[in-house]
């Protein structure tokens, strides 16, 4: 069966430096795969490669079985992307931001659906008509998550999705991710939050200096053991 997301011996270079070196993994439909790694491990670059923003220097990237290089538009139409910095417009309200980016995606959405998505990420109602320049980092992140939800794509790429969220919002977000995966969405998230990754992911991959150096899977309905992953992460990072 074709995996929605697959990296085959993927190597990437950015500005002359090797970022990924022969990384291979696949994410199955309805699976949450978390790539865990320290700063500069190549996590965000991996996501950008799935969106066609970075061309592989080696190997291949596949979305729904098709090479991204062959059809970038098809890859992007299947993926909703949540960047690390919640890149939205400060001079627009939450509604305006959602409306604009969904228009760009060619997706027509009713206002009620906006509110539904914003309710799911628990963005206060009174804030929704305010410009984002008055938002906290967490509120901006919630708006960006709402945008990703409204895209209703089969694949979700999340770059440090809980960055800036308070602990309650993080728990709510984890529940939301599980719901989405349960509904069949394929989710690849990159993070350096070991606890969060273990809470939500079906599998965790450890990325270090451009190489996948470990993999942990949830078994028998149990969550991945945080202590085990943390130990491996700390060992690898200090090795």
């Amino acid at each position: 069966m074709t995996s929605p997301l697959e990296a085959r011996s993927l190597s990437l270079n950015r500005e002359g430096n090797a970022v990924l070196n022969g990384v291979s993994f696949a994410v199955a439909e309805g699976e949450v795969f978390a790539l865990l790694g320290g700063n500069g491990a190549g996590k965000s670059s991996t996501l950008l490669a799935f969106l066609g923003f970075l061309e592989p220097s080696g190997g291949e990237i596949l979305v729904n079985g098709k090479s991204v290089a062959d059809d970038i538009a098809a890859a992007r139409s299947a993926i909703a992307y949540l960047p690390e910095a919640a890149a939205l417009y400060g001079h627009m309200t939450a509604y305006e931001n959602l409306n604009y980016f969904l228009d760009l995606a060619g997706k027509s959405v009713k206002k009620a659906d906006y509110d539904d998505a914003l309710n799911r990420v628990a963005l206060p109602i009174e804030a929704r008509s305010r410009r984002l320049q008055s938002y906290s980092k967490g509120m901006r992140q919630k708006t960006a998550i709402a945008l990703a939800l409204l895209r209703e794509t089969p694949i979700l790429l999340l770059d440090e999705p809980t960055s800036g969220l308070d602990p309650v919002a993080i728990d709510e977000f984890h529940d939301l991710v599980k719901d989405l995966a349960g509904a069949g969405q394929t989710i690849l998230m990159v993070t350096h939050d070991v606890y969060g990754a273990c809470q939500v992911a079906d599998r965790v991959g450890l990325l270090r200096r451009g190489q996948l150096v470990g993999s942990f899977a949830a078994e028998n309905g149990e969550r991945i053991d945080t202590e085990t992953v943390h130990a491996a992460f700390a060992e690898r990072e200090t090795a």
Binding site: L51, R76, Y81, F101, L104, A105, R151
Partner: peptide, 14 residues
Amino acid sequence: ESGTLAVMLAQGQS
């Protein structure tokens, strides 16, 4: 600079 270019392109715009 603000990162919105990536989001715009990710929406499928060239």
